[in-house]
Design a protein around this nucleic acid. Structure first.
Lengths: 215, 215, 215, 215
DNA sequence: AATGAATGAGCATTCATTCAT
DNA sequence: TATGAATGAATGCTCATTCAT
């Protein structure tokens, strides 16, 4: 059901977008179902009806984001890209997703550090689904390491880097006087790609002892 | 008054630490004053008494974090460190702050992307206070750029990178089976330093046209 | 909607009556929503649901009282009564309203002297709506005066006189040992009418110089 | 102790005046002890210390008002004034008290209609103390009546009339554009006196059957 | 006489959810 | 599907008062 093309005018979709917008702005816990219902122009009860509660809305938002991430990984595998190109493609595609589905991405990223009981199982499940992707990604970049600790540093660092713009957006808008448009996002993708690629190369040469042989 | 060393047994301090712990775990909006009061073993009314409301607790937490960040900047200026050493010192010191005041840092970082009305003025003020530090930091790294857009990408990227561990901590603990101790944080600081230094050098050579001359 | 006849068993109406009773007895500020909810046999949340908060209940009560006052004025205009009859009709009708909707009247009158911020705008609006009625009333009684000061004395004096019984009711019950019934209210209306009519005539002859010519 | 001349700078007195001002503005129940303490520039605990709680402040305010009223009655008895002069003196003196101790009077009058449990005994006591004065006043005006009902109408009516200005002051200021000064209060006293005297004469002639012979 | 910390009860309001229609 | 009334718990906060100092 989730993948079926949906009319954005359908209530279910309106709820999802209104929810994502509000969660992105104020954080999941600070948003009430009434707010969402008003923004989506539906009756409050419809949120429980469609998503079995407020938590269901967030879960769906996060799942949609992860579907997109998964699609990016699949694309890279299927194209059998090599290290540098794979990395650049990954960054470019991820920035593209962020540009087009900003609010969904921002919600998925900003809610990740929190540990609300009603999501602990859900998050564990999502994590499990993506562990393998992350491992394969690190292998592809010739960065798979015997020492798991290095993996546990690099993977979040990369994700965090790519999403930095979205995490700090309110701050950025206050501090710098810039116009954020397509051109900006091109520069953004190029800058982050470079930083990440050269940075990871630096790690590869600095930590030779820690980096294992991958077939 | 805020900087005076305080007995952690004092109610004010207990509230602050209990608040930070809970905000770090569940996010500001998901925590109730009653929860904080119980954890801090004080009467609910004391939270309003000392901090003029729940929002006051978060503000104090964020201010304390920013005081530490400011101290790091001041240290670097006063030592007149050069580019590479300055960067490494910055990362090391910041990781050190994160290690010792993890929950305060995590709260400051994770609440930044949100835009609750009761904090908008406060955040603007904090932003203003730190703009100059960030600018000077970029100058020191010979990364001050004519094109403001590049600054607006690099600065958040660096911060985001350094804090990546704390943003993804719950995720990391689920995916990797590692022990997080002092040794781990040493490796973490070294890895992030390398990634950032080599990455920024990559940017310097790739974007020569955008980077201005700084004395 | 406000004027539609409503089943007194409807929650909205029960809240209104319970609220009026309690406000009349203890004053608006001394009554809690929980008290009202219990007395009206509704859930506490229903008070905010129907009236957008405790203040909304008082506003509705006052509006209902003023609707009745307005209806009396309209009745007098439409009947084209002359001075003496108009005055007697006014007093009689007002005493009648007071008798039948005692608590609503008492609340409207006793809360008028206070200036709570949440009502200042509302009261100004109500005042505006009734200024014209009062002016026309004074004209009808041939008491419209060039000197606005006299108007500002007479109008409140008349209202105050008519409501005196309700303002001092608790006091009256303590001091005099009387039974308050329909007969009592007949005597009350007659006494107040006489006092007011003869008193105003006295003013007319004593202050000839201040009283302007009205057609 | 209450009658001893007190330095208005003494905390006790400051509390009393700050309390009266706030009670007059917002009503007893809507005022917090902290508000009073701040306005009086004393510590919160001092209110309980001097007056044994918030209720004690109101009681003292009301007592002071009644002392003044009692003094007026005593003056009239001692001067052995006759009906008309007695009435005019009463009104004039009362208006004078109102002018000079506006807030104390307003509080005493506006809190009278309410029946808070913590004051029921106090109010009964105050009522008892003044019943005799009122009876004697009515006798003096040759208005003492066999039918107690008429007394129970006239006495509150007179008081209510005299205080009408203070009950409706916020309303008056909104509706009429007048300057309230000494001259205004002179006119006020004269108008109310006339209204009351002529009105009561009207009653005397209209209700001959009800008015008994007094020696 | 005066303070400020502390308490526990109470405040109005909002919450997510349910349910009859 | 969709509504709006209704619920009971929980929200942040303020209350008058007390008490050790």
């Amino acid at each position: 059901m989730r993948n079926v093309a949906q009319n954005p005018k359908e209530p279910r979709e309106r709820i999802l977008e209104a929810g994502a917008l509000l969660f992105a702005k104020k954080g999941y816990a600070a948003v009430s179902v009434r707010e969402i219902a008003e923004a989506a122009n539906v009756n409050v009860a419809m949120i429980s009806y469609y998503f079995a509660g407020k938590a269901g809305v967030l879960k769906e938002i996060i799942l949609r984001y992860f579907d997109d991430v998964q699609a990016i990984f699949d694309k890279i595998w299927s194209r059998k890209l090599r290290s540098e190109e794979a990395l650049k493609t990954f960054v470019n595609e991820l920035v593209d997703v962020m540009k087009n589905k900003t609010i969904f991405c921002k919600v998925a990223i900003t809610e990740m550090p929190f540990n609300l009981p009603e999501f602990s199982e859900f998050k564990a499940e999502v994590a499990r689904r993506h562990v393998e992707y992350i491992r394969q990604g690190l292998q592809l970049l010739k960065l798979f390491v015997e020492d798991e600790r290095l993996n546990s540093i690099i993977a979040p660092a990369a994700i965090s880097l790519i999403f930095s713009h979205f995490l700090f957006l309110p701050f950025i808008e206050k501090v710098w006087n810039i116009e954020i448009n397509d051109e900006y996002y091109d520069l953004y993708a190029k800058t982050i790609s470079t930083l990440l690629f050269d940075g990871l190369n630096g790690i590869k040469s600095s930590f030779k002892n820690l980096i294992g042989d991958v077939k």
